[in-house]
Each structure stands twice: as C-alpha cells, then as structure tokens.
C-alpha cells in the first residue's frame, strides 16, 4: 500500500500521458474532419499540429505531477526554440517556402519556368531549393524562399490548364479501387475540364507508410481554376477519407450505418500545386 502511495505521482503522470494520447488522436481526428474542404496536405499538417499541441500540454502536466518544476523546462524549450530559429533562419525560410510553394505555386517538376534572370526546366524540387536545367545545360539551384517573393513565369505549354494534386494514400488502401472511384467522382466535373485530357493518377513512390500519388487534370477555362482546384481537392479528400476509414461491416438491419471514426486517416497529407 505504501509503495502505491509512494509512486502515486508517477501513476498520475502515466495516466495523464495515456489520456493525452487519446486526446491527441481525438484532436487530430476533429481537426481533420473540420478541414475536409482544405487541401489534403494542409489538413494533414493541421492534424499533426493539433496532436503536437495536445502532447505538449499533456507532457507539461505530467512533468508537474512528478514534481519537476516545469517553469525552467518551458524556459529552456523557449530559449532553444529561439536559438534554432536564429541559427536556421534562412533554411527555415526555404523549408517554409517549400511548404507553401508545394501547395500554391504554379509549377512542378518537368515544367519550364523563368524566375529572376534564370529560366529552364525544373528537374528537382527539394526541401530547400528548386533545381533548373538551363538551355545551355547548366544546373541552377534557386532557394525556395525566392519563389515566395519573386515573379515566377511558367512557360510550359498549357501550364495554366494543369492542376496537380499530390497526396498520400495509406499503405492498406487498394490503389486500383481507389483510382476507379476517384475517376468516377472526377468524371462528374468533365464539363468543366478539357476533355482531351482525362485525369491521370501517377504513382510517385511507395513505402511502408503509404503511396505518394499525383493527380493531374486539365481545366477548360482559366477563370474557373480556383473553383475547380477547390472542388478537385475536396473530391480527392473525400475519396481518401472513404477509403482510409474502416469500411462499415454489412449489418442486416442497418446497412447504412456510418463507420465508426475509430482511426484517423493513416497518411493523407497532400498538396494542391495550384
């Protein structure tokens, strides 16, 4: 009994961490549901952020419970954060820019672009820079942050028509079934799309965590680009959600019963490079 009393704070801390884990998952799910209309990658980022905040709060409570002064810890974390921000300011700018250019910049690997005095074909977009090959076979590496502040011209033919939506499917998802379903959903938008170019789903990479894919569609009218981008992203997100949530079991009495939202989608971060 004494032993139990002696370790009661630690037990409380463990309990808090367990509750934190549950709340983090719940927060991730709630944020994901709330951001269904957003680009899949933005929604995935927000879900992760929600979970991290919950873990931070839960962690601090747990630390206080075992008697450690969390004020000093908070101070150390804050100072470390500031130091990292100062030391890596430029790299972080590029990382951040990469995040936003992934989502909002109108170019992708394979496109011909012009930015500042550089022009060429994009052969790589990495975490910190975009690599071009110029007309005279030179490699030019442009920091991603430049794309946030400079005028970019995409000189690829029909570049304005192309919408790409990169996203990740959880490893358990049946890709052929998913593609078939997605094509059906996108087919309903065909009046708004250039019908000579049906949607193309390209597989980029595959790992134990999931399958990286890029959906490409071609729009008909430039003025509908924004609206179509949002609609396509929404349809991709809905299809991902449908395939990544546990399927409802066939129940005799209630075949329409909604699936329990037990698991958050495995890995649906995506980008809409629009």
């Amino acid at each position: 009994m004494n032993l139990l009393v002696q370790f009661l704070p630690e037990l409380y801390a463990a309990l808090i961490l367990a509750i934190t884990a549950l709340v983090a998952r719940l927060a991730s799910y709630v944020v994901g549901r709330g951001m269904r209309q957003s680009a899949p990658q933005v929604a995935a980022g927000a879900r992760r952020l929600g979970a991290v905040i919950v873990w931070l709060i839960g962690g601090i409570f747990a630390i206080q419970e075992v008697g450690i002064n969390s004020d000093i810890l908070l101070l150390v974390i804050a100072l470390a954060g500031v130091a990292v921000l100062v030391a890596l300011r430029e790299q972080l700018e590029n990382f951040g820019a990469k995040y936003f250019t992934d989502i909002y910049s109108p170019y992708k690997v394979g496109d011909s672009i012009r930015v500042r005095e550089f022009s060429g074909k994009v052969i790589e977009i990495n975490a910190t820079s975009t690599v071009l090959i110029t007309g005279d076979d030179q490699l030019v590496s442009i920091p991603n942050s430049i794309f946030m502040t400079e005028v970019l011209v995409n000189t690829s033919p029909q570049a304005w028509k192309e919408l790409t939506v990169p996203f990740t499917l959880g490893s358990g998802v049946d890709l052929p079934l998913f593609e078939s379903e997605l094509l059906k959903r996108l087919g309903k938008l065909r009046l708004r799309l250039d019908r000579r170019y049906p949607p193309v789903l390209a597989l980029k990479s595959r790992s134990a965590q999931g399958t990286e894919l890029t959906l490409t569609i071609m729009i008909r009218r430039p003025e509908e680009r924004d609206a179509l981008s949002a609609e396509v992203v929404k349809r991709v997100g809905e299809t991902i959600q449908r395939f990544q949530l546990p399927r409802p079991k066939p129940v005799e009495a209630k075949p329409e019963a909604a699936p329990p939202p037990a698991k958050a989608p495995a890995a649906p971060p995506a980008k809409a490079s629009e």
């Binding site: 890709l175 052929p176 079934l177 078939s180 379903e181 094509l183 059906k184 087919g187 049906p198």
Partner: peptide, 22 residues
C-alpha cells in the same frame, strides 16, 4: 469519341490496367 475516357466503363478499363501494373 469525346466521352470514352470519361465514361464509367473507362474507370474499369483503368482498373484492369492498374491491377496489371500493380
């Protein structure tokens, strides 16, 4: 002519080719 690649049937054509590729 214009509708083939947008038809529901085409999604199954794509499905078959995708399971082949997989």
């Amino acid at each position: 002519d214009e509708e083939l690649f947008w038809s529901v049937d085409f999604t199954d054509y794509a499905y078959y080719n995708r399971i082949t590729a997989e």
